[in-house]
Design a protein around this nucleic acid. Structure first.
Length: 112
DNA sequence: TCACTGACAAGGG
DNA sequence: ACCCTTGCCAGTG
């Protein structure tokens, strides 16, 4: 549902960035929060949590700072998050992305 | 209105 | 490397 948003909505900003995470790459709650100057990484998780139904937002590419799939419990089934990542060629082991550092993508890489 | 909660992060011991 | 504390800020009771 679309609602009249006059004030800056955290949701919209988070989605805007999340949608641009390249397939096969991942980023973190903190990186998105930092890029948007939201002040708190918790806001990012909160935004994604409240909009799980949006299929066009690759929420599975957003991890915590350790590259762990901390948000997997909110997928149905929980294993879906890992499955989506592996489908993009991202190896996951023990709820953690393998070689997280090389897969990491920061919003600042947006064509500058 | 106050207190507690959370898909988090950074720093200290 | 692990555990605990603090900062963060919108939602909820």
């Amino acid at each position: 549902m679309k609602r009249p948003t006059s004030a800056p909505h955290y949701h919209e900003q988070v989605f805007r960035v999340a949608r641009q995470i390249p397939p096969g790459r991942v980023t973190t709650y903190g990186a998105i929060a930092d890029y948007l100057s939201l002040g708190s990484a918790r806001m990012v998780g909160w935004a994604l949590f409240n909009n799980l139904s949006l299929d066009d937002v690759p929420a599975h590419r957003v991890l915590n700072r350790n590259g762990e799939l901390s948000g997997r419990v909110h997928f149905r089934p929980p294993e879906l998050m890992q499955a989506l990542l592996e489908a993009e060629g991202i190896a996951v082991e023990n709820d953690q992305v393998v070689d997280f550092a090389s897969k990491f993508w920061h919003p600042q890489e947006l064509g500058y």
